[in-house]
Amino acid sequence: MKSLEIKKLRVAIGGTRILQDVSLSMAPREIHAIMGPNGSGKSTFAATIMGRPDCAVQSGSIRLFGKEIRKLDPEKRAHAGLFMSFQHPVEVPGLSTEHFLRTAYNTTHPRTRLGPVEFRTRFEMYANRLRISIDLARRFLNEGFSGGERKKLEVLQMLVLEPRVVVLDEIDSGLDVDALKLIAQAIRARARKGTSVLLITHYARILKYLKPDRVHILIGGTIVKSGRAALANAIERRGYEKSVDGTKIVRRNS
């Protein structure tokens, strides 16, 4: 069974059409990359899969393990095994990261709930793996974190919550090379455990460390081309316009 299957998705925000006829399907363990220039609708695509309320699905379907989720609230999608990392993770002052994440874990894993001590062990193990200092992890959710720290914390959340399908929205932006290698490693480890990974990115940089099974190019709200990992290299060398022959590129501002 496909883990994530999107068919002819058409999405508008505030009455403006952002995506049309986007289709994509992924199997467990697969890593797909969505690439595209600014304003092509990449982030809207990610947010729509997760169910952001302002992304109105006008037609098409989003199936998670065969189950239609386009009308579900975001938390129900999370319960079904979906996770999205945010391009701009949100600050919640006063909310302990660890407390929040344990609550999130226990609501998404009702059968294997963890007590505070068990959870802390797991939390610290993953934090160590990502070289996130325990002090940082103990702070309030994203409050006062640098851009890079926030991205690492998104990956930490992904590891802890053990989702089966993840959508990573520009997880690579704002990271130095060392951090990039670390999170690529973590994502690869997640995929080996059966999770499908949909990477949304501007640059092929992360794809050096994370070989995608498929690369899709999203331009003007539509997937104009799909191919193997080599397509990403072509984009890196020649830019979007020359890599996508015969397609008129419509740019919009994001």
């Binding site: 309320p53 938390e75 999370a78 319960h79 996770f83 919640v92 929040f100 609501t107 959340q157």
Partner: peptide, 16 residues
């Protein structure tokens, strides 16, 4: 809205 969506995307209900 973004704060709510962020927490909900991790599995919490709107009220939580």
């Amino acid at each position: 809205e973004e704060q709510l969506f962020y927490l909900q995307s991790r599995g919490l209900s709107e009220q939580e």
